[in-house]
Design a protein around this nucleic acid. Sequence first.
DNA 1: GCTGGGAGAGGCTTA
DNA 2: TAAGCCTTTCCCAGC
Lengths: 248, 248
Amino acid sequence: MKFEDFKSKLQSGLNNQDLIIIIGECYVEYIGRATSKLPRGKRLIIIKADKSISIHENRLVRPTNYMMDSLISCQLLEDGEIQLLAKRLKPKESITIHLHEIESITNYSLPISNDLRLSGSEKELNDALMDDLSFLEEGLRPVNQQQVFRKGICDIIAEDKNGNLVVIELKRRKADLSCVTQLKMYVEQVSNLKNIKTRGILLAPEIRKSALELLEGYGLEYFSYDFEIKERSEIKGIGKSQKKLFEY
Amino acid sequence: MKFEDFKSKLQSGLNNQDLIIIIGECYVEYIGRATSKLPRGKRLIIIKADKSISIHENRLVRPTNYMMDSLISCQLLEDGEIQLLAKRLKPKESITIHLHEIESITNYSLPISNDLRLSGSEKELNDALMDDLSFLEEGLRPVNQQQVFRKGICDIIAEDKNGNLVVIELKRRKADLSCVTQLKMYVEQVSNLKNIKTRGILLAPEIRKSALELLEGYGLEYFSYDFEIKERSEIKGIGKSQKKLFEY
DNA sequence: GCTGGGAGAGGCTTA
DNA sequence: TAAGCCTTTCCCAGC
């Protein structure tokens, strides 16, 4: 494909905010947050209306190279090579696509919409949980949701029937070590701040064995729950899997 | 586009492990780890040789819907609607693409390669650091790299000139709260296991203010460093940004 | 297969 | 803009 044809097609697509699909033999270099080289091979290149660019191989969901908010240009080198360039200032990074052969470039007029409607996010579960904490534990009542602390944001802060503060960390998937350390940190923060005995509850559908051990060692509590996703997320039930170890 | 034409083109692409590009007006439903609905609109659909499928809008690098290792099929409903289905068993999930109009379906013969060569990963920095710990602190010598503990994996364990164990957590980007809690956990683990005074050093190019405060509160240490990425990553220098607070 | 953890994480929300 | 954090995280390496 001639450079002039390629360039005008590309310019037209960029101007119209089309979705641009390029198939071609190329060698890709990235320099920025890291560096990478993608040896010569046939690839799919996608340029979208928001100036995001991505280079895909014929496997995996994620692109091998990509950039958001890029400045896109192309140039013809003296030796006849066509280069497609994507640059960005913050962070400073660049993708250089050495196009040895262009099999096709096609522009598609697609709306720049943003209308995926997702159900079952943690936010929804959080709201559902806040509606009624008592089925987690009798006498538990919410004090605050998404409380911002000096260091981090607690999902839920509640008070139990004995007047203890309870920090609740909600997860929508199997809890791992990081969930436990996260909760631990919040409990420490709240405890220090309020200078009051504070419990910590990790609420997740499942928990990894090592995470449960760590949690128990910290004197925190774990509750399991099931959730069903319909129009709005519903929490089906709470299973108390673990009793508090230390009464301090 | 006629269903039979679409179906045969799709089948051919799947059989040949082509990269398949579909542009069409569609409505997408996802049920699985969450649920989502993507209202009718023109979208890009990519099917790759490894049976990964993704649906893209004309913005963002990441697809709105996607699935790995999917079983892909298509069917014609009685009312004339063409459906493209992607299913998976573990986790059980499904994408249903209601194709109202097919603008194009194109198969591209692309190799199923996996040859991105990335430099500047944490692994590389780790190796570079292990070559000489002494420029971090005089007398510091490595004991173990990537030590697997019961709960988590330490980046580096070293011994300082006074015989104290030193747990080093290396990050290639700005350290946040989770880096600190992660290091804290390792230090606790090592300290308990070996029953010996253990220091913890967080090594990162930058650190967030709140993370530094938390780290200081825990009696851990932070060192900043610069790195340059060439063929192999090189660590340019170590800056001691923070002195140990507690000598316990 | 599960687990741990990095990623050029991306992307969103709020201070 | 920075911080905090969820994600259908994805993806890989190790066990």
